[in-house]
Amino acid sequence: MAVKRAKKKSSTMKDDELEMDKIGDGGRDNLQEDVSSNSREADKKESNRIITYKTYDADVEFKLNEIPSKNDEILIGPARLTRFEKARITGARSLQLSLGAPILTKIPPEFTDTIMIAKYELEKKTLPISIRRILPNGLYQDIPIEWTI
Score class of each variant (00 low, 15 high):
M20P: 00
A2W: 12
N38M: 09
K4T: 11
I143K: 02
R83L: 06
V3M: 13
T90R: 05
S94T: 09
K4D: 10
D29K: 12
E41D: 14
K44E: 09
E146R: 15
G100W: 12
I131F: 08
K4V: 13
V35S: 01
D25E: 09
T126V: 15
I107S: 04
I134Q: 14
L127A: 09
T55C: 06
K7D: 10
K54H: 11
V3F: 07
L122D: 07
K63R: 06
L139M: 14
K119S: 04
R88D: 08
D21L: 10
L104A: 05
K44P: 00
A101I: 01
K86R: 09
D72Y: 04
R28F: 04
I23H: 05
R132S: 03
E66S: 12
K44T: 07
A87Y: 07
D72I: 00
N48R: 09
P144F: 10
I117Q: 12
T82K: 03
G91V: 02
E19V: 11
I107H: 09
E85W: 05
S37N: 13
K125Q: 15
D113I: 09
K14H: 11
K125F: 14
D142S: 08
S10F: 04
L99Y: 13
T90C: 01
R83S: 14
A92P: 02
I76H: 00
T12K: 13
